[in-house]
């Protein structure tokens, strides 16, 4: 399995650390209702198909990546730097 880091190029899966779904970018406001925090921390669409999730190029540039990929075929469609996403979460 390989991922193409926008900074480092195609790299082996061993260089990356996986966090989980894109939801982790949508941190609720401090005063948000507990249901919002429950959704943020726990509940997931968990699609069998296209998903967007977060990977860290730990043995590389130290950048967090938002990866658009397919959970059934493992096809990778897009890799973006979290730090330069438009309208970052905060």
């Amino acid at each position: 399995m390989r991922l193409t880091c926008p900074l480092c190029g195609p790299r082996d899966r061993r260089e990356f650390h996986y966090l989980g779904a894109e939801e982790y970018l949508r941190r609720p406001a401090a005063e948000a209702a507990s249901a919002a925090w429950d959704d943020y921390l726990h509940n997931r669409d968990n699609p069998a198909g296209e998903t967007r999730d977060l990977w860290y190029h730990e043995a590389g540039c130290g950048q967090w990546l938002l990866v658009t990929r397919d959970t059934v075929s493992h096809d990778i469609r897009k890799v973006e730097l979290v730090a330069t996403l438009k309208g970052g979460a905060k």
């Binding site: 982790y24 860290y56 950048q63 967090w64 979290v82 330069t84 905060k90």
Partner: peptide, 18 residues
């Protein structure tokens, strides 16, 4: 140590990138 570094990088890049 490793977990904290990953975490700080995440918080910075996801929520404090600017």
């Amino acid at each position: 140590a490793g977990q904290v570094m990953r975490h700080l990088d995440f918080v910075q890049q996801a929520f404090c990138a600017d």
